[in-house]
């Protein structure tokens, strides 16, 4: 086997491991950029996963499943938004409660879907292009959600950096009082950003239950929502670095499994720890330069906005 033949399946697996993280983290990045810290990503992902699975298995349509996940994730985020933005509840506590609520709700709804199998989302192979050696299967043989994750990330990067509404959204995250004084509708913008974050978390969940492991199992996110949260800080709230972070995390997760199978004699416990260790290490490196965090973190992140009359 040549080196490249070995590489293709690894890269393909890395892509599937990274996609749910990238989807959920992209949403959270936008939410946090608007100054809202929603720690409920794990719960929203789970609710998205069960919504997608339930609808897809009832209708036989993956697309409807994806739609259901977007709506379900957004609905969860709406609960959070009402609590924290309108009622000014503490964001950290409400976010944690949202995760716990999502875990319970998805388990309750999912109880009757345990043990049901589902055909995975089809891969959108493009005739001709998918047959190109090496690059073909990697670039042109993925399912819809993988392409979506890239498209949405690119759109978010463009939106935040190059559009007027994007700049307004960032302004709201930096100083809600100033934005308010300038006449921007802080609360409406935050609602929008939070709902977008919820919908994206739902989409990440849908990827898990429709494509990654096409089944429903309780708690199937197994902490991926928390990783997505960490990735946003890791990326210092920048879309480009988010892509890097998500794929680095996915790659280390997969490579350690391959290394074990190949008989590399490093304790497996250490290998399992590696992705987390790498994330912490980068976080520490970034945090050492406190100006960098201060420059990049939305200044009003997690702060309650009380509009002055």
């Amino acid at each position: 086997m040549s080196g490249l033949d070995w590489l293709i399946p690894v890269v393909l697996t890395v892509i599937t491991a990274s996609t749910p993280l990238l989807l959920a983290a992209t949403g959270e990045l936008v939410t946090e950029r608007a100054g809202v810290l929603n720690l409920g990503v794990e719960g929203m992902m789970l609710v998205g996963a069960i919504a997608a699975f339930a609808v897809a298995s009832a209708t036989g349509s993956g697309l409807l499943g994806i739609l259901a996940a977007l709506l379900a994730g957004a609905a969860m985020a709406l609960v959070f938004a009402v609590l924290t933005i309108s009622m000014m509840a503490n964001q950290v506590a409400s976010g944690l409660a949202l995760t716990i609520f999502g875990v319970g709700l998805s388990a309750l709804v999912g109880a009757s879907f345990v043990g049901i199998a589902l055909d995975p989302l089809p891969q959108l192979s493009i005739p001709g292009l998918s047959a190109i050696p090496v690059l073909g299967p990697i670039l042109f043989g993925q399912d819809l959600l993988v392409y979506l994750s890239f498209a949405i990330l690119a759109a978010v990067a463009w939106f935040l950096a190059r559009t007027r509404p994007g700049l307004v959204l960032k302004a709201v995250g930096e100083s809600h009082d100033s934005a308010h004084a300038l006449g921007y509708r802080v609360i409406a913008i935050r609602y929008g950003a939070t709902l977008f974050g919820g919908a994206m978390a739902g989409l990440g969940g849908a990827y898990l239950s429709l494509s990654y492991t096409p089944m429903w199992a309780e708690n199937m996110t197994a902490g991926r929502g928390w990783i997505a949260l960490a990735l946003v800080v890791f990326a210092t709230w920048r879309p480009g670095r988010l892509l890097l972070g998500a794929y680095m995390f996915g790659a280390i997760t997969i490579l350690q499994l391959h290394a074990q199978g190949a008989g590399v004699e490093i304790p497996s416990q250490f290998m399992s720890m590696l992705p987390y260790l790498a994330t912490i290490l980068v976080l520490v490196l970034i945090s050492r330069d406190s100006t960098k965090i201060r420059l990049n973190a939305p200044a009003c992140l997690g702060k309650v906005f009380r509009p002055a009359r």
């Binding site: 697996t13 599937t16 199992a217 997760t253 499994l257 391959h258 074990q260 199978g261 190949a262 416990q269």
Partner: peptide, 25 residues
Amino acid sequence: IKVVWVNSWYDPGKEGDAAKALIDQ
């Protein structure tokens, strides 16, 4: 037998990834 440890009793995604790695090998 090639063994891959996932250091978890229950993580569908990781268990699946381990199986993929083993099949690829």
